[in-house]
Design a protein around this nucleic acid. Structure first.
Length: 402
RNA sequence: GUGGGUGUAGCUCAGUCGGUUAGAGCAUCAGGUUGUGGUUCUGAGGGUCGUGGGUUCGAUCCCCAUCACUCACCCCA
């Protein structure tokens, strides 16, 4: 027997209904917010991810599904969605055209990691990106859009926010931080490495000893430039005015290198150790990293599999028909009727004749509203027998009136 | 990549201190005399006890290896 690869799952009913419900809900809300659907290739040139996500990140460092194709191209299955969208944005020359563009996407992402609860090698994200809008109101809008999505899906969550600064305030802070870190003894191996590659990430270390050492570390939040500082204040006041609770987490550093200014993460405490259900922020430099004209951007991505464990599905009532034959002579009429009725409604059937009791049992289990049967009596009268499985009301009507 | 846990019927799990034909519930199918469901009753089908080796007269059970799944670390959605 051939099984699916490690960390890759089939999505089958009833999970597929939950998946579809999430996509539908997100799509509707994103469209209300002015985002339009974009589909980008799942396979991209490896260089795209190295330059956008960043070589220092674990994603690029050790988690990419990377290979050489038959044309000798170095390619990757996308580990996240933003890079492809930015590439498409630049390729379409939207950067030169100017204006504000908003896109949403959803689909599979791939990371070669050891699977665990809430982590798969092929997983699915829904995400959205706004280009060309510098106002921090857009950052707030995206957070409020996520709030609306989670409310629509019946998901409870906590929001954490932080500011990662900009090219004005980040570099001096970075220098100060490295100076502080150099004075420390006993950081873990990972932190020693991160100190060189991406010192900001040291703040995010889960190691208890490191955390205690870092208690007195300088915080970017206290060293923001005037613009970043006032933007962060604006963001907080908008969230306050829309009753969007949040906690400021100065240690929150998104895993991807391209973020700047606003960073946020929605977390759930009901899904195991992998608790982030959505994350995002601003990435004002990314477009130029990918050879575009400098254009600011802000966006988010959420993990659909992680949401699937939390979604409360709306109640569904009985719907549609089940049509069955009580004798072999009625089989062809049943079949014809089924195909015809499907032009207007959901119809299930069986290709064999069975007892009335069997048909009713099947119809009940399929959770349809009506059970329709044709037997010898109906055949000779040109009628059908129909029963409403909710009201238990039954009647016999002319076949042409069905 | 590292560590823990688990592999017995389609699903959820019992079980054998090693001993003849391995069990239950749910699910499936058929029936409870003539065409009535979600509740009941009866019956049937369905298992190389993850795989390979070892110990033993004998292994589903003990030992070793291996694979798979799972949780956690790292990191992230």
């Amino acid at each position: 027997m051939i099984n699916a690869l490690r960390g890759m799952k089939d999505t089958i009913s009833p999970n597929s209904e939950i998946y579809t419900h999430i996509i539908k809900t997100c799509t509707k809300i994103a469209q209300n917010y002015g985002f339009s659907f974009i589909e980008t290739p799942i396979l991209e040139e490896t260089a795209l991810f190295k330059r956008s996500v960043g070589e220092s990140s674990d994603i690029v460092g050790k988690e990419m599904y990377q290979f050489i194709d038959k044309g000798d191209n170095d390619v990757c299955l996308r580990p996240e969605g933003t890079a492809g969208v930015v590439r498409a944005f630049v390729q379409q020359k939207f950067d030169k055209a100017g204006g504000v563009r908003r896109f949403f996407y959803h689909g599979p992402m791939f990371r070669y990691e050891r699977p665990q609860k809430g982590r798969l090698r092929q997983f699915h994200q829904f995400g959205a990106e706004t280009f060309g809008e510098a106002s921090v109101k857009e950052d707030a809008t995206i957070i409020l859009m996520l709030k609306e999505i989670f409310e629509a899906l019946g998901i409870s969550y906590k929001l954490e926010i932080n500011s990662l600064g900009c090219p004005t305030c980040m570099p001096p802070y970075r220098t100060a931080l490295v100076g502080f870190l150099d004075g420390l003894e006993g950081l873990c191996e990972d932190c020693e490495r991160r100190k060189i590659t991406n010192p900001i990430r040291v703040l995010d270390c889960k190691n208890e000893h490191c955390r205690s050492l870092l208690r007195t570390a300088p915080l970017l939040l206290e060293n923001l430039c005037d613009v970043c500082s006032s933007d962060f204040e604006t963001l907080k006041s908008i969230l306050d005015s829309f009753d969007m609770p949040y906690v400021i987490n100065p240690m929150l550093v998104r895993g991807l290198d391209y973020y700047s200014k606003s960073a946020f993460e929605f977390v759930s405490d009901e899904i195991g150790a992998q608790s982030a259900i959505a994350g995002g922020g601003r990435y004002d430099r990314l477009v130029e990293f990918l050879d575009g004209k400098p254009t600011c951007g802000v966006g988010f991505a959420m993990g659909i599999e992680r949401l699937m464990e939390l979604v409360k599905m709306p109640e569904v009532g009985r719907d549609g028909y089940y049509i069955g034959a009580l004798c072999d002579e009625a089989l062809s009429d049943v079949y014809r009727l089924t195909i015809k009725k499907r032009k207007e409604a959901h119809v299930d059937t069986t290709y064999e004749s069975k007892s009335l009791k069997s048909h009713l049992k099947i119809a009940d289990k399929l959770y349809v509203k009506f059970c329709v049967c044709i037997g010898e009596d109906e055949l000779s009268n040109g009628t059908i027998w129909i029963k409403d499985l909710e009201s238990k009301e039954e009647k016999t009507i002319k076949i042409e009136n069905f």
